[in-house]
Nucleic acid binder design. Structure first.
Lengths: 221, 221
DNA sequence: CGGAACGTTGACTGTCATCAATCTCTGTGG
DNA sequence: CCACAGAGATTGATGACAGTCAACGTTCCG
């Protein structure tokens, strides 16, 4: 196992590694992203500590990889490390969670308006990174404006307009480029049809199915 | 373990089951879908034999579930069945694959034009279900027009226009409502930036990482 | 202090959604 | 076997939302 220390903006491309690696986020915040022809970048997911990425769990597009949004630590393991039961359980829950989040994100991109998508992102960020402060929930936004646009499948100009709208309505404010203060979380939650789902997926520590399986040792089928 | 036989259009909602179940597609073709307020339906993924769905691997939105597109057989197992090493490997590869496909789909919805999305779907269908016939690759399309629209995050009218365009260009034809004949697969592939990725994800039997792990028995970390 | 990267805003354009009218299948019952 | 009903699909007219381009403002960095 190797620990990788990534600087901000540093990127690791998931090539057809032999042997394949599993990258486990230990600290920091990264994106799983890819760039299509004509500079169409899409951020598939934002990754947090506990997430595991492998080539097989990522879409097999040429430039797929992950990018550190802030200084991050990633453990790289080889496939053979997953012989152990405990590791396997970890892998199953991590991948199931990844699939669930990717599906939710597809739904957000596919069926929500620009404003709803932005609200959804902001709720995710508050739930993951927000701190209670006087005046609202505050967070250090790890995504740049362009990153946010690439995550939400919007263009930066449109996103800027949407942000201005939320600001003028007093839902949130941005004292500087990276800091966000959500002044009215309830209003924000009302803007996103996925608020409840986000709450479930961001707060429950890890889903239950296979972690519980270890305990019950009875034979199957 | 229970085998469920599903009729066309039959739907199973993934509730907060206790104990949670794993549904393994044995035969047929289904969708993983959900409906948001204002009748906004999104098909997250099309499921094929070998796929495994659990509540934890699906986005935690209220009406999430799967729908049979044609008569299908699904095995329902309980969590305790996943104690065994072999099952765990199965689970890991299945979920990793699900995550990869969900990510690819998000990219398709997010960054492709309507026409590119439709081409992407048609390529997926040809690769999964196509039969070589004189005059092109033929397939029985399991998705109705509305399903296709809900999968591609388009509306049915727009989709109809796009289909007409492809038909008039001679890329494909539809002798009846459900049968598709792809007359010029190369032209179709050129329309989708994700053609190569689809090829990788639809043809490789199952990804390699954890299936190989069983063999190497050395200690980890 | 100056330059570059990043962000904002306005005017215009294009794509896709919506609504409505019409047409086409498909299955049912006379 | 045909007529019919109802769902499904097509197509045109129109409108809304987001994309594009360009100009300008702001922040951050050397």
């Amino acid at each position: 196992m190797v620990h990788l220390t990534l600087r901000r903006r540093q990127r690791i491309v998931l090539q057809n590694d032999v042997p394949e690696h599993a990258f486990m986020i230990e600290d920091g915040c990264l994106t799983l992203d890819s760039v299509l022809p004509e500079d169409r970048r899409q951020i598939m997911l934002v990754l947090y500590p506990g997430d595991i990425i492998t080539r097989s769990a990522a879409p097999p597009v040429p430039l797929i990889g992950f990018t550190a949004l802030r200084p991050s630590i990633v453990a790289r393991r080889r496939e053979s490390d997953f012989v152990h039961q405990a590791r396997q359980n970890e892998g199953i829950t991590a991948f199931a969670n990844l699939a669930a989040r990717a599906g939710l994100h597809a739904m957000s991109i596919g069926r929500l308006s620009g404003e709803e998508r932005l609200a959804t992102l902001m709720i995710e960020m508050v739930l993951r990174l927000g701190q209670s402060t006087p005046g609202g929930r505050t967070l250090e936004m790890p995504l740049s404006r362009n990153d946010m646009a690439d995550y939400l499948a919007l263009n930066p100009d449109t996103l800027s307009r949407l942000m201005s709208r939320l600001r003028s309505r007093g839902v949130l404010s941005m004292p500087n480029r990276s800091r966000v203060i959500v002044r009215d979380f309830d209003a924000l939650a009302k803007l996103s049809p996925l608020a409840d789902a986000l709450h479930l997926i961001c707060t429950r520590p890890t889903p239950s199915l296979f972690t519980a399986a270890k305990k019950t040792e009875d034979a199957a089928c």
